[in-house]
């Protein structure tokens, strides 16, 4: 007789001894109690979620149909803000800049992070060197974006900055419309490459060493092993990096705000700084809300698309 059968028998015997008429009764009461405790446990988080996130989204939706008169009264304006958004070249410029920002930062951070992680994973550099290297590259992640912006602002300064010290007549990194956005994006890459590297290194360390050994024994070179064995197994890590990078790009604010303020002439404007400008500098809350709704919808759509893409890839691999 199996162990489970034994236990069932002894339990029913126990039930007879203690004389409980409904064998399920106690279990059910316990479950009901558990249900009550469970609601108590999730209540605080849910309240914060309802009060801030759900209310926030709902308020954005409501407010995006409201406008203000000269005397501060709020009136219903219908689709006005959405219509002007569609015809606002700066909105489209900001959206475009968010896209450029995502491609440049996530592309380079992921690529550089992966190359560095693969090198560290070779285990030939000595553990002290690896620790030093990881410490240095990851350090900017913990720093405040405002501090970073001011330091890099001085590095980029075309007259008395660090770069100008080596390179006389260097371009005006933050002041030229062609370079401003890319110069700020470079700072983002400096700050976040360490994050990609560590995430990828963690994923590489989860791949059994035997897999690499087997590939080498079969005659595969290092590059082939990396391409055909390691990279496919890094897909979940890549998906995580892309989704985190996408959210990070869409909510970019600090670096751009401090270093260029979206300028010159909106050349480096992103949605975050533009919402700030419209809602808080110009007091057009309705328009700010309409752009926030657009930003939320965009985030949702892109996240779902990315998840679908990576899941399909996953299924194929």
């Amino acid at each position: 007789m199996s162990m489970r059968g034994l236990r069932a028998m002894s339990e029913s015997a126990l039930g007879q001894v203690t004389g409980s008429r409904q064998p399920g009764g106690r279990v059910r009461r316990r479950q009901r109690e558990q249900q009550g405790v469970a609601y108590l446990f999730v209540a605080p988080a849910t309240l914060l979620f309802l009060g801030f996130i759900v209310y926030g989204i709902a308020y954005n939706l409501y407010n995006s149909f409201q406008g203000q008169t000269l005397y501060g009264k709020t009136i219903f304006v219908g689709w006005l803000h959405y219509a002007s958004m569609m015809h606002d070249p700066i909105f489209w410029k900001a959206l475009y800049n968010n896209g450029i920002w995502f491609v440049v930062t996530v592309g380079i951070q992921t690529l550089l992070g992966y190359v560095l992680a693969l090198l560290l994973d070779l285990r030939v550099l000595g553990s002290r060197f690896v620790k030093f290297f990881k410490t240095v590259i990851f350090a900017p992640v913990v720093l405040s974006p405002v501090v970073i912006s001011l330091v890099w602002g001085h590095i980029y300064d075309p007259y008395r900055g660090l770069i100008a010290g080596f390179w006389h007549n260097c371009p005006n990194w933050l002041g030229s419309p062609q370079l401003a956005l890319l110069s700020v994006a470079l700072v983002n890459i400096w700050q976040w490459t360490g994050f990609s590297m560590l995430l990828c290194l963690g994923a590489l360390q989860d791949i059994p060493r035997e897999l690499r050994e087997a590939a080498y024994i079969d005659g595969a070179g290092y590059l082939q092993t990396a391409r055909y064995i390691l990279l496919p197994l890094l897909k979940p890590a890549t998906a995580t990096l892309f989704i985190l990078g996408m959210i990070g790009s869409l909510q970019q604010f600090g670096l751009v705000f401090v270093m260029t303020g979206g300028g010159p002439a909106n050349a480096s404007q992103v949605l975050g700084t533009y919402i700030y400008k419209k809602a808080f500098s110009e007091g057009n809350f309705g328009y700010g809300s309409a752009m926030s709704v657009a930003l939320l919808v965009l985030t949702l759509v892109v996240t779902v698309l990315q998840l679908a893409f990576f899941n399909r890839e996953q299924g194929r691999a």
Binding site: I53, Y59, N60, L250, F280, S292, V293, L296
Partner: peptide, 17 residues
């Protein structure tokens, strides 16, 4: 879902709250 909320998109409602 909150994990995917951009901070910047909630600045206006938080301000009002």
């Amino acid at each position: 879902l909150t994990l995917m909320m951009p901070f910047t998109a909630l600045a206006v409602p938080f301000f009002i709250i």
